[in-house]
Each structure stands twice: as C-alpha cells, then as structure tokens.
Amino acid sequence: MYAFDIERPATVAEAAAALGNEDAQALGGGQTLIPTLKQRLASPEKLVSLTGVAEMQGITSNGGTLTIGGAVTHADVAGDGSYKALSELASNIGDPAVRNRGTIGGSLANNDPSACYPAAALASGATIVTNTREIAADDYFVGLFETALDEGEIITAVKFPIPQKANYQKFLQPASRFALVGVFVAVTADGVRVAVTGASNEGVHRWTAAEDALSANFSADALDGLSVSADDLIADLHGSAEYRAHLVAVMTKRAVAAAS
C-alpha cells in the first residue's frame, strides 16, 4: 500500500468536511477498499473512516419502511429480519468475518457489478440517503462502479419500502463469493420489480420484460418464453455471456417461486 493518513470522524458533518479534500476517500468496512489499496489500484492521501459515525448506525422500521444506517454491517442486516429477503441476502454476502466488517453504504457506493445489495436496492425501489440529498435507486446506479454520488458525498442511510413479497436468488461464484448472477424480485403495490446483478457490463439493471409479465401473472410460468439477450453481458472465465443470460431467467424463476 502507498502511505496515507486515516481520520475517524464522529459525526457526518466532520466526515463531510474531511472528505472535502479531493485526495481523501471514504472508508466503510474496507472489505473491498483495503484489498484494492494493497494492489496499489488506489492512492488516496487520506482515508476517512465512517464506522465511528454514530448517526450512520442503527436499523429502524417505521410504517412499512426499513431504514438502515450507511455504516451498518451485513451481519447486522442479516440479524434484523424485518425485511426477510434483504436479511437473507445479507446473510449470504462473503463470509462471516467479511459480514462483520462490510457495510451496506460501502457496497452501494462501490457499486460492484456483481455485488448483492445493488440488486436489493433497485428491486425494492429503495432511496439512497446522503449527507446532502435523497436519491431514488432508479437514478442512483449509473454503470460499472459508477453511481450518482458526487465527490465526497456520503451515504448516511438507505430506506427500503418493505415489499409485499420478495426474494433474492444468487448463483454463487464460489471463489469470490460474489454473485455470478443474482436476481432480486420484489412485489410492490405498484407492480413487480426485477433487478439483476452480476450479468451486465453496465452493472445492476432492471429486467422490464419480466416485470411486465410478472405484474400480470406472478408465477414462474409467466416467464416461459422470455429470455435475455447475451449482448453486453459479462463474459469471463467463470461464465460466458450466453451462460449468464440463461442464468438470469433461471434465477428469476427461482426467486419468483421462493418469494414470500
């Protein structure tokens, strides 16, 4: 690693001030950033650790909305249970030690194209709350490792409207424990939303053809005959674009069948 300083602010305001310097970078649980620093793929002068910010801790459920602090770990989301599909998703990220450090805000800010949380946020129609504004999930995920966040903007919380039914199915890439393909299906008052991670070079995205079919008839059979184009899907040694396209349909059907 190149040398850098670490600040540990206690409030969001202090963290935002520390991130005002353009060579500063936010540090969540560090489960992605620290390996990246070790490879010298990033060279911030200063890391601003967000794990000590009390305002970014805690999970609250109120009127059908679950609000999770940006610095809440995957283990704490897994243990919460008030949004079952989300807790199940969190309980299958990485391994137990990673889940004890990694945070929801960190995952969403990084927007890895194979990460699990982006699929949950997009399918649930979550709201990303930052120190300056609220961003709808539909406007938040811009592309590969790209989000609507400005430089130095901090995810302080994520608000999930709890769907009527939901489920996440992850086809595990066993070495990285990321999703080779993951599909989150949520039945909301405004219809069904389907979000796909791990498949596209553009990152997490909605599968609108499946949403239309499932909104008319919420059953796995409603997806018969629907398929995803392999164009612009991720192709690597773990799976071809065609294989991932096939998996998208399979995982969507499994998620529909398992939704509760």
Binding site: I6, G30, Q31, I34, S49, V98, N100, R101
Partner: peptide, 19 residues
C-alpha cells in the same frame, strides 16, 4: 488471520490497526 474485535470475528489483514 481471523481475530475477534469487540467480540466479532474479523480478518485482521483487512482492517487497519487505527480502526
């Protein structure tokens, strides 16, 4: 490298001493 920090198992190679 797993150790416990405040009672929780963590990978000590993926956490800074300052934290």
């Amino acid at each position: 490298c797993v150790v416990h920090v405040d009672g929780k198992a963590v990978k000590s190679c993926t956490m800074f001493a300052i934290e």
